[in-house]
Design a binder for these strands. Sequence first.
DNA 1: AAATTTTGAGACATGAAAGTCTCAAATGCG
DNA 2: CGCATTTGAGACTTTCATGTCTCAAAATTT
Lengths: 184, 184
Amino acid sequence: MATDRDSVLEAAVGILSRRPTAHLDEIARAAGISRATLHRIFPGREALILEVGALGLRRFSAALDTARIEEGNAEAALRRLVDAVVPDAALCAFLAGENQLYDHEEINDLWEKQDARVRALFLRGQQEGAFRVELSAAWLSEAFFDLVAGIGWAVQEGRLAPRESAFSLAELFLGGALRRSDTP
Amino acid sequence: MATDRDSVLEAAVGILSRRPTAHLDEIARAAGISRATLHRIFPGREALILEVGALGLRRFSAALDTARIEEGNAEAALRRLVDAVVPDAALCAFLAGENQLYDHEEINDLWEKQDARVRALFLRGQQEGAFRVELSAAWLSEAFFDLVAGIGWAVQEGRLAPRESAFSLAELFLGGALRRSDTP
DNA sequence: AAATTTTGAGACATGAAAGTCTCAAATGCG
DNA sequence: CGCATTTGAGACTTTCATGTCTCAAAATTT
């Protein structure tokens, strides 16, 4: 459930994923609280950003769990992952853009762990013959994340309907832009 | 050719695309000049950022020109575009992340114009039967840009070899991650 | 309804980066 | 070689977001 802190963090993401330099004023207003209260909940800007990152990682990690990406065939696992991750795409977009967090050991470790799970999925998919081997698993993993972030931005700014987002992401990433006469 | 200003701007991109909040000190050092000289060339931070954006758009526009995206079949045009745009991927990554520039009329207009050209390419490709029609031209265009930015980041941080970048971008975007028995 | 707690608005202090200036060193030019 | 221009290092001022504080209003509890 969305605790009090989490709802503030989600409001913060809405602002920060678009403008990482936004003032605390603005974030507080978006969260519907005063700057004073924001300060009471989070000691300062740095702490706030850190917690947004931590929330993003928790959600991403939870998405990997609910999608059970280690099970079944790789393509189906990836499709499940898309469905699970799309609701938190904005959070992922923030994570993707916030390279500053990477010198925080705790965050860094958690990120590394989740990233490894995704890379492993692609590697497994390549070994199963599901994914192309001409593209490195690392690049597949990174590109996937880029597109998740892109979906997050596009939805947030109204350029893409939320209902289409999972389909658009999965189809483009898996199938590419080229039309084909046959289904694979 | 890279005039004096442009070389400073390119150094600035190297820093700013990774950390948009970097101090001017750092940017000056990266450009090999002093903070005083940086101030002499660009009146201030805002002006610098603006010019970086303008350079990015000029380069992107030039890439669309050299790729002659309006000519020939759409797939080939897109492949040419990939080759033309990859050298400036870092600049594009900056553009993608810098939504602040969008309230500058001049920049905004220029961006809108180039974006329209790319969208037109995808639309044309869909009409020719080259690109899938289940995905909107707007999303194809946006996703393409997301991946260009991703390539820029990955190369800049050494996660992807520059020589592989054009291939990785074109293949993933056009063909997707799924392996296929036949070539389309 | 009274008491306790939480919140918001604003004033104020702090600190850090941006912007400005000066002057000596370096560079380029005639 | 001497003159002119440009550059760099640093001190300084300014600006603005952050962080801190206070107090009254609102909400919650009992």
